[in-house]
Structures are given as structure tokens and as C-alpha cells.
Computed example of a mutant assay.
Amino acid sequence: MADELTVDIVTPDERSFQGPANGVRAPGIEGSFEVRRDHAPMIAAFGIGPLIVKTEAAHEYADMHNDRIVFATSGGFLEIIENKVMVLAETVEPASDIDVERAESAEERAQRRLSQEVQAEERETYEAARDRARNRLRVAMGKVGTRQS
């Protein structure tokens, strides 16, 4: 395929995806961005949000209606060199593998803690936990790109 990239998504624990793609969209620290064939070499940080691999190839996690695989991620780095995209993620979870009840419980726990008086450092920790849980819920429910308070 002429528009192909080679994509490799890894975490400290596993390789989550490896294969061809037409593009990769990541939740960049300064805004989301997309990588296509012949993108300039780059290293970028990304944060909590959906990581989307656009592919026509059959893959166990592919949403065959949209030809894309959506992952919930909590941040990491993405490197592009000569049409090879290496994603080094803290965590990455395919939408189809997300346990919605577990994510809802995590969000509720974080919200409960945030409603109590906590130190600034603890507040940041609980806000990040809440944001990760909300991202997992949005990805699992197919509401990628929508805002929820």
C-alpha cells in the first residue's frame, strides 16, 4: 500500500500493536496531531487521551466499520523516522478490552477523594486518576473526541 506506515506500540509490559497503518492520531501535549506517510522525523510527547491507528488491514482490535483501532493511553512518547512510528506508552488499552465497570469505579474513587480536603500534590494525583478513568470510559463507549466533565 502506497500510504503505509509501520507502527509499533509498546508499553513497559508488552507490545500492544505492530503492523501497517495509514495514519496515527495521538493526544499531543500541546494538542492532538496526526502522522501520515512521509512525515518529517519527530519525537513528541503525548498525554492522556485516545491513540488512534488508522488501518485497512484486519487486526484483532480493529473497528471494521471505521477501519481504525482506538486505544486509551495515559501518555508517553512517539517517534517518527522514515515512515516508522514507534509509540512508547506508559499504558495503552484497546477499546475492546476496557472494563467499563472498573473504569467507572476508578472515576468514582477519584471524585470521592477530590471532594475531600487534600494537599495540592494529592489533588494532582487524584485529578490524573480521574482523567485516565474518564478517557478509558470515552474510548470504551466510542465517544472519542467528545468532552465530558
Score class of each variant (00 low, 15 high):
residue 4 E to I: 06
residue 7 V to Q: 05
residue 8 D to M: 10
residue 8 D to I: 11
residue 8 D to G: 05
residue 9 I to R: 03
residue 11 T to N: 08
residue 12 P to H: 03
residue 14 E to Y: 04
residue 14 E to F: 04
residue 15 R to L: 06
residue 15 R to P: 00
residue 15 R to H: 10
residue 16 S to T: 07
residue 16 S to D: 02
residue 17 F to L: 05
residue 20 P to D: 01
residue 22 N to D: 13
residue 22 N to C: 02
residue 23 G to S: 15
residue 24 V to Y: 04
residue 25 R to G: 01
residue 25 R to W: 05
residue 27 P to H: 05
residue 28 G to E: 11
residue 29 I to T: 14
residue 30 E to D: 13
residue 31 G to C: 06
residue 31 G to P: 07
residue 31 G to H: 04
residue 32 S to C: 03
residue 33 F to S: 08
residue 35 V to Y: 08
residue 36 R to H: 12
residue 37 R to A: 07
residue 38 D to C: 00
residue 39 H to C: 03
residue 39 H to Q: 08
residue 40 A to P: 02
residue 40 A to F: 12
residue 40 A to N: 03
residue 41 P to R: 05
residue 42 M to I: 10
residue 43 I to G: 01
residue 44 A to F: 05
residue 45 A to Q: 12
residue 47 G to D: 15
residue 48 I to Y: 03
residue 51 L to P: 06
residue 51 L to H: 03
residue 52 I to C: 02
residue 56 E to V: 07
residue 56 E to F: 03
residue 56 E to H: 11
residue 56 E to Q: 12
residue 58 A to V: 07
residue 58 A to Y: 08
residue 59 H to E: 14
residue 60 E to W: 00
residue 60 E to I: 04
residue 61 Y to H: 15
residue 62 A to E: 07
residue 62 A to L: 15
residue 63 D to F: 00
residue 63 D to L: 01
residue 64 M to D: 10
residue 64 M to Y: 02
residue 65 H to A: 15
residue 67 D to A: 04
residue 68 R to P: 01
residue 69 I to R: 06
residue 71 F to Q: 01
residue 71 F to N: 02
residue 71 F to V: 02
residue 72 A to D: 11
residue 72 A to V: 09
residue 73 T to A: 10
residue 73 T to F: 05
residue 73 T to W: 04
residue 74 S to D: 14
residue 78 L to H: 08
residue 79 E to C: 03
residue 80 I to V: 15
residue 83 N to R: 10
residue 83 N to D: 15
residue 86 M to A: 13
residue 88 L to S: 12
residue 88 L to C: 02
residue 91 T to A: 09
residue 92 V to G: 12
residue 92 V to M: 12
residue 94 P to V: 02
residue 95 A to L: 04
residue 95 A to N: 08
residue 96 S to Q: 10
residue 97 D to S: 12
residue 98 I to A: 01
residue 98 I to K: 00
residue 100 V to R: 13
residue 101 E to F: 04
residue 101 E to H: 10
residue 102 R to E: 11
residue 103 A to S: 13
residue 105 S to A: 15
residue 106 A to H: 07
residue 107 E to G: 05
residue 107 E to C: 11
residue 108 E to G: 01
residue 108 E to Q: 14
residue 108 E to F: 09
residue 109 R to C: 04
residue 110 A to R: 07
residue 110 A to E: 07
residue 110 A to N: 09
residue 112 R to E: 14
residue 114 L to Q: 05
residue 114 L to P: 09
residue 115 S to T: 07
residue 115 S to P: 02
residue 116 Q to D: 14
residue 116 Q to I: 00
residue 118 V to R: 09
residue 118 V to W: 11
residue 123 R to K: 15
residue 124 E to F: 11
residue 125 T to C: 03
residue 125 T to P: 04
residue 125 T to S: 08
residue 125 T to V: 14
residue 126 Y to A: 00
residue 126 Y to L: 01
residue 127 E to K: 12
residue 128 A to L: 14
residue 130 R to Y: 08
residue 130 R to V: 03
residue 131 D to F: 01
residue 135 N to D: 09
residue 135 N to Q: 06
residue 137 L to Y: 06
residue 138 R to T: 06
residue 138 R to C: 08
residue 140 A to H: 09
residue 141 M to S: 09
residue 142 G to W: 08
residue 142 G to D: 07
residue 143 K to P: 01
residue 146 T to F: 06
residue 148 Q to K: 02
residue 148 Q to Y: 12
residue 149 S to E: 11
